[in-house]
Design a protein around this nucleic acid. Structure first.
Lengths: 225, 225
DNA sequence: CATATCATTATTGTATGCAAGATTAGAAAC
DNA sequence: GTTTCTAATCTTGCATACAATAATGATATG
């Protein structure tokens, strides 16, 4: 299985790196050739990625990189917001000096990247900051769920950090989140994290749908009774 | 793949039914014989179940039904509590007549089972009730996450519905949850669902650890700064 | 009697081959 | 020119075979 697990990671990395775009076909034979192995471990890797929701494996019809509908995507961001805010709530309740320090370090890194307007760097540092919060929840299972979803959304998250404004705004939100967690204010930490994440989903939906469709009729509109 | 997917479901069902207990080895050859297929689709099924966290696939060492530590189990229940309360919060915000009716139906069924003290039936109806709430969140992705985790915990949940008292108490909690959702009180719905789920995790931990260990030193104790 | 080492056995990991379903291209009909 | 049916082709699904690693048990040694 060693091979299959390495392949799973490689394929996942390739997808995250944007080498395979949503909708692209993941052909067993070509992947086998590319990695110099037979189809068997490739299949095993693809099926695992499919089970994790990373790709879409349709019986007899091959695997493709999942193409979540705008609605689905919004739902994923909304779920991410709920999970992250849960992490924040627990972090506020359970913060240890170690976790505090880890968040501080990650936050400082974000600060530098934001000041320099380096969105690629900020993207990486931002990830570390959020992961520090997941860990600070001191619930490793919840943190695992958060990691997994974060990875699945990374392709969509990256796009919107391009604007310099968003970088600085994001940084400010981070500061507010950190403050709330440190104050032990569970409710505030949860709310701030929720909004911080959800705004990304909203901005992304706006971007995807552009002027054409109104997102509200798609996802948020469901709030209406 | 058709075969592999059917097998995945069958094996999962067998695990949920308790036919394979935590720690049991899932040997490829015997499973292949049992289902009358070759090892290939069995492997594919096992790897998928492993990716979903349902079983533990250790490279070169075979698959076993996962044996979460008491700490891990508590973390899983705590995560379930957070996810369910998120569902409840959204349900309170977005309730439609359809979803309301579905919850009502499921609740009525629980009521009957509880009155008759039929814990097996209550177990099934309880599941329907919770699933109705997941759907009422009107976020299908979040609902999927909730379904998945609910399934993984089912083995541990079933055990504790045996006591007649717990049945009636559970039912009353359901009534309170329903009331809060209908009132559109997001905060109250979230809190009640959270407690309803978490109490199960706590009761289970108590059961597992018995008199021996103090759960608080294991999981909840982390809340202490 | 316990422990360590080595050979045997069993089980998993990968490759290959073939069967079956899906896709595509081409020809015929409209 | 478009559509539809059919045949050729391509891709996936499963079985089998072999290679490699882990588990087991026997034997020898302290």
């Amino acid at each position: 299985m060693s091979q299959a697990f390495r392949l799973k990671q490689s394929i996942e990395d390739a997808v995250i790196a944007g080498e395979f775009l949503p909708g692209d076909r993941l052909d067993e034979a070509s992947l086998a050739e590319r990695f110099g192995v037979s189809r068997t471990p490739i299949r095993e890797a693809l099926l695992q990625l499919g089970a994790e929701g990373f790709i879409d494996v349709r019986p007899r019809r091959g695997a493709i990189v999942s193409v979540p509908s705008p609605t689905r995507l919004f739902e994923m961001f909304e779920t991410m917001a709920e999970i992250e805010s849960a992490c924040g709530r627990l972090a506020a309740r359970r913060l240890t000096p170690d976790n505090d320090a880890a968040m501080e370090t990650a936050h400082r890194a974000c600060e530098i990247a934001a000041r320099e307007g380096d969105s690629e760097q900020y993207y990486a540092d931002n990830r570390n900051f959020h992961e520090a919060i997941y860990r600070a929840s001191r619930n490793s299972f919840l943190a695992d769920q958060a990691f997994a979803l974060h990875k699945r959304l990374s392709a969509y998250r990256r796009i919107q950090l391009r604007a310099r404004n968003r970088l600085l705004q994001s940084l400010q939100e981070h500061a507010g989140i950190l403050e709330a967690i440190r104050a032990g204010d569970e409710q505030l930490a949860a709310t701030r994290l929720h909004d911080h994440v959800l705004v990304q989903g909203e901005r992304f939906s706006d971007m995807v749908l552009g002027l054409a469709g109104d997102r509200r009729s798609d996802a948020a509109g469901r709030s209406a009774k």
